[in-house]
Design a protein around this nucleic acid. Structure first.
Lengths: 257, 257
DNA sequence: CGCATCCTTGAGGGCCATCAAAATGCGTGG
DNA sequence: CCACGCATTTTGATGGCCCTCAAGGATGCG
């Protein structure tokens, strides 16, 4: 196998999944190499380890290389999960422009992150506006996903909400080259799903039972099994356009320079 | 009154409220003048007029000068309001990096926007990284507000949700110099509030009645009257840090260059 | 003064929270 | 290999929040 045929994540071990399935194809080899050279360090996080705590002043950001992370917000001693991150996500690039985050960033299961000093991002912005704009783009993807979650929380009930989350997660994993047919493996617990859907773990359990009995999806110990994907997506009212994949709303033809 | 004492929105009629109460104080006079010169056009929108429709390819973005706008997402013929914008918000700057929006941008009441061609933003990024970073920052404010809404939708019930929205709106209007003591005037209807809180208009009506009977807030025909602001904020579990105001989480001391 | 929009109120039922308890699977140490 | 502790998952019963259907009242505009 020649080097040109290697998948991106083998050619670029730290950053190869960044924007994969979205606009990564717009990057030149030189730009990919430049990205790959940004991290000063790779860290391994244990399950539940907090990478960034709300309010901390930041001088670096981290790209998620392997595993999963969540963004959490605490209110009244109750934790909410407001976002789920997958490999290739520049998880706290928000912190570059914001300087402090309004939420915590927590590892879900073991995770590996590549740490990029903000100083190096300064250099990118000053010398390569196109790459800078793609970094900006990547943070706005999070915002788009947030908006979709708001819409789903406003419109759907628990079983549909979790179906939507399953469909989204599957789609995002596929985008970055981590999709398997019929199954999604995660470190998620039913309690985590409850925190994402804004219901109690007890009710999440019943909602998952409903999906199971309806033959839509089976979730067991972090693994999701789906026979009829279209049915899952229909039940969860999932339309992938908001993920700005190469196939959807954010098609590339003539849109970007 | 000398020119130096004029409020920002009189010195800079189009962009004077941009980042006001947040990081506007970091801008030099030259940079403010440069911002003020960006718009190529000012448009007036009628109530309900759609400025940007989901999926349209964009070559310009708009700053909200006067009035209110909402971001809406449609699913299954049902509309959700996922965001509320106030004067000074660069409402669809997201469209600069995303090229298309995943949602509609709609005027709530009569609104005025200043239209900025993306070509001019390109120039800013290429020549003034600091200003570029502040533009980036402003889009991430929206993401932070989205996250807070997600958390509130997950944790609170209707009366508290709407109290939170009232508290946030009041705080944001104050930041940009539009606060009045004890009252907030908007073109919002109870149906709009229902769309933001993910409940039916009927239940929103009852929730507002609950706030009224509890002496927390009176909402009548778009106007909000509050006697005890601390009580409103406590009831809605509102903590302003996520708005990155000069007083909160995003304090400026030594954080930015 | 008619009309459209917005607001208000009532009754019945479904989704989900809470309290309580038990079963299952997994890692650890005996 | 089994015993044990622990997190996770499962199940039942009761009550509250919110939806739906239905109807009526208020406000502002032409």
């Amino acid at each position: 196998m020649t080097k040109a045929e290697l998948p991106e994540w083998e050619r670029y071990p730290n950053t190869g999944r960044f924007l994969l399935g979205r606009r990564r194809s717009l990057l030149s080899t030189a730009e990919k190499q430049r990205l790959e050279a940004l991290p000063s360090d790779v860290r391994t996080l244990a399950d539940g380890e907090v990478l960034i705590r709300r309010g901390e002043v930041l001088d670096c950001s981290a790209m998620l290389v392997d595993g999963f992370m969540i963004r959490t917000i605490w209110h009244n001693n109750e934790r909410s999960i407001v976002s789920l991150q997958v490999p290739g996500d520049f998880v706290d690039l928000h912190g570059y422009a914001l300087k402090r985050l309004d939420h915590d960033l927590v590892a879900l299961g073991t995770a590996r992150v590549a740490v990029v000093p903000h100083r190096k991002i300064d250099e990118v912005l000053a010398t390569d506006p196109k790459l800078g704009r793609l970094l900006w783009f990547s943070t706005l993807l999070d915002a788009a996903i947030h908006r979709e979650w708001i819409c789903k929380l406003e419109q759907l009930q628990a079983a549909q909400r979790v179906a939507h989350i399953f469909a989204e997660l599957w789609h995002r994993l596929e985008m970055v080259g981590l999709g398997e047919p019929g199954v999604v493996r995660t470190p998620l617990t039913q309690a985590n799903l409850a925190e994402m859907c804004g219901v109690t773990p007890i009710h999440m359990n019943r909602s998952l039972g409903q999906l199971r009995r309806a033959g839509i999806a089976v979730f067991r110990r972090g693994s999701l099994y789906v026979e009829d994907r279209a049915r899952l997506e229909q039940f969860g009212d999932f339309v992938s356009a908001y993920l700005y994949g190469e196939d959807g709303l954010g098609t590339l033809e003539g849109v970007l320079d």
